[in-house]
Simulated assay, not measured.
Amino acid sequence: MRLTVLGCSGSVNGPGAACSGYLLQADGHEPVLIDCGHGVFGELLQHADPNRVAVLLSHLHADHCMDMPAMLVWRRWAPEKATERSLLYGPAGTALRIGAGASEYPGQVDDISDTYDVREWVDRTAVDIHGLHIEPFKVDHPPSTFGLRITGPDGEVFAYSGDTGVCDEVVELARDCDLFLCEASWTHEPDARPMGLHLSGTEAGQVAARASARSLALTHIVPWSDADAILDEASAAYPGPLQLVHQGQVIEVRPPL
C-alpha cells in the first residue's frame, strides 16, 4: 500500500497546510481518501481523479470532513464530471452533515445521493473497498469517531487512530500493524491540553508501544503546538521507528520481510 499525506494539520488549517486527509492505494486498485478536512480537496487534485476515489470519514468534525462539499461540486459540474456514484463511508448522520454543508440555503440539506452511495460504519464490521480490507473501531472522541485498521493485498497493515483519547480500542486497532498513523495534537503538559479529547506525544508513543506497532507516524498536530517537543515525547515512550508526517509525503506500507 502507498499512503500520500494530503493534509495533516490538527483542528484548523493554515498557510500551505491542509487539515486531515490521506490517500491510501493498493497497487493495481483505485485509491481511497481517508478524511477530507479543510484544504484537502485541492491537494487531492494533484494525485487522483476525484471521480474514482472512495471516501472514508473517521468522524464529522469540520477539520475531517468539510472539504467534501468542494468535491461534490467537482463531481457534479466539472467537464469530466462523475458518471456514477462513489462510496462514502462515515458515522451515522454523514449524509445529513455533508448535505447541510453543501446546501446553498440556510436550514436546508442538499441530497447528495445522486453523487455518493453513503454508508455508515458499524463498529468492528469490516468492509472491502478497492482491494483493501477495512475494519472500523469506535474510539474515544466526540462526536461518534472511528479509527481504521486496513489490511492490504499482501497482508500489510495500516492503522489510523482518527481523533481519540487514550482507550483500549485504539491500542487494539493498531496491534502489530506495519504503520500506525496516530494523532498527537499537543504536548503532555497539563496546561497545554484538555484531558481525554486528543492524544499528547507521550500518549501516542505509549499507545504505539502497547500495540507493538512496527512503526509510528505522528499527525494532527495543532498549529500552536510544539511539534519537536511532541516528537521528543513520543520517542521517549516508543522505541520503534518514528516520524512526524508532512504534507505531500508518500509512505510505502509493507509487511515485514
Rank of each mutant, 00 (worst) to 15 (best):
R75A: 00
R75Q: 04
W77F: 14
W77D: 12
W77Q: 12
A78S: 13
A78R: 10
A78I: 15
P79S: 07
P79W: 10
E80N: 12
E80T: 12
E80V: 14
E80Q: 13
K81F: 06
K81Q: 14
A82L: 02
A82P: 05
A82N: 04
A82G: 10
A82K: 07
A82Y: 01
T83H: 12
T83C: 10
T83D: 11
E84L: 08
E84C: 10
E84M: 11
E84R: 13
R85Q: 11
S86Y: 03
L87E: 00
L87R: 01
L87D: 04
L88S: 02
Y89N: 05
Y89F: 15
G90M: 03
G90E: 04
P91Q: 10
P91T: 10
P91W: 14
A92R: 13
A92D: 13
A92H: 13
G93E: 04
G93R: 02
T94E: 06
L96H: 07
L96F: 12
R97W: 15
I98Q: 01
I98Y: 03
I98F: 02
I98R: 02
I98H: 04
G99R: 00
G99Y: 01
G99K: 04
G99E: 06
A100G: 11
A100H: 12
A100M: 14
A100N: 11
A100F: 10
G101K: 08
G101F: 09
A102H: 07
A102G: 07
A102T: 08
S103N: 07
E104T: 13
E104H: 09
E104A: 09
Y105V: 15
Y105P: 03
Y105K: 12
P106W: 09
P106Y: 08
P106V: 11
G107Q: 08
Q108N: 04
Q108M: 09
Q108K: 06
Q108L: 10
D110L: 12
D110C: 11
D110H: 08
D110K: 06
S113G: 09
S113A: 09
D114A: 11
D114F: 02
D114M: 00
T115M: 06
Y116K: 04
Y116C: 02
Y116F: 15
D117V: 00
D117P: 01
D117C: 00
D117Q: 07
V118M: 08
V118Q: 04
V118G: 04
V118F: 08
R119M: 08
R119S: 08
R119D: 04
R119V: 06
E120K: 02
W121S: 07
W121F: 03
V122S: 05
V122L: 09
V122N: 04
D123L: 10
D123A: 13
D123F: 11
R124T: 15
R124N: 12
R124G: 11
T125E: 15
A126V: 10
A126H: 12
A126R: 14
A126M: 14
A126I: 09
V127M: 01
V127A: 01
V127Q: 03
V127K: 01
I129Q: 06
I129V: 15
H130F: 08
L132D: 01
L132F: 07
L132Q: 01
H133W: 06
H133L: 08
H133Y: 08
H133E: 09
I134K: 00
I134C: 02
